[in-house]
């Protein structure tokens, strides 16, 4: 707990907020994650790419315990992920997550989607939660949609609401699991713009995406995964121009030339 308090102020870039050490995961006999080692510093932006089925989503879903790893250690913001429910809930309220399929709550208006968790988890008074929600809706540029239901919004708008919903918990870390993969092409940019702005504000982010233009713009670190392993981890200038591993080269040539 001592560490938690001091971390915000001093030595921002030194402190590791996420640490994965020798993480392994199996689905039955299938090994989905193989000895994953990764660390993320405060305000670092990590972009994870790789072919489908390579374990990218599984890895980031382990970080907020939507998936359970079977071996290794995951430490988030100084708290190790174990079966301890208190720890899991503590970590989840610090880690925001944005999904490929938005997963907004369709039975409540946008504003309630945003205020729900702050009120229930953070015990924030309704008025404050609504103020906070409107603030974040303005930031993702759709305050006028506050009283509509998610089903009445376009995909791009829904994903921006989903981002705002996560931000309302004022998380220290944001995880993005292919946030633009389910969107029509003309809506991808509006979501990426919001994410770029978030990155500029210093949010610690792990983003699983195939948007290489976005990756080049915001990433501090590029991670390439294949068959459950981290094959290569490098800063973007090196990653895109001179990757070490032939598998990375092959993947990049496939994704960048189409």
């Amino acid at each position: 707990m001592e560490n938690l308090k001091s971390s915000a102020s001093s030595q921002k870039h030194e402190r590791l907020v996420i640490e994965l050490t020798g993480v392994n995961k199996w689905y039955g006999d299938f090994q989905a994650l193989v000895d994953i080692n990764m660390s993320v510093r405060r305000s670092e932006r990590v972009v994870v790419c790789g072919p489908s089925g390579s374990g990218k989503s599984t890895m980031i879903r382990c970080i907020n315990r939507l998936e359970v790893h079977q071996r290794g250690r995951i430490v988030v913001d100084g708290i190790e992920l174990t079966d301890n429910l208190k720890n899991i809930e503590a970590i989840r309220s610090e880690v925001g997550m944005v999904f490929q399929s938005f997963n907004l709550f369709p039975h409540m208006p946008v504003i309630d989607n945003l205020t729900l968790a702050p009120m229930l988890v953070r015990k924030m008074p309704k008025k404050d939660a609504e103020e906070l929600a409107m603030q974040y809706l303005e930031r993702v540029q759709i305050p006028e949609q506050a009283f509509k239901y998610p089903g009445q919004l376009s995909g791009g708008q829904q994903q921006r609401v989903a981002i705002a919903r996560s931000l309302c918990m004022q998380p220290k870390i944001m995880l993005f699991d292919e946030p633009t993969s389910a969107l029509d092409p003309e809506m991808i940019k509006e979501v990426l713009d919001v994410m770029i702005e978030l990155a500029e504000d210093g949010m610690t982010m792990i983003v699983v995406t195939h948007e290489m233009g976005f990756a080049k713009t915001v990433a501090d670190t590029m991670v390439f995964m294949d068959a459950g392993e981290i094959v290569e981890s490098a800063d973007p200038s090196k990653f895109f121009t001179a990757p070490d591993n032939p598998r990375t080269k092959l993947f990049l040539s496939q994704i960048l030339t189409h």
């Binding site: 880690v95 907004l104 988890v121």
Partner: peptide, 9 residues
């Protein structure tokens, strides 16, 4: 998953 990720019990 969305509810869990927001920290809801």
């Amino acid at each position: 998953e969305a509810a869990e990720a927001l920290g809801l019990g």
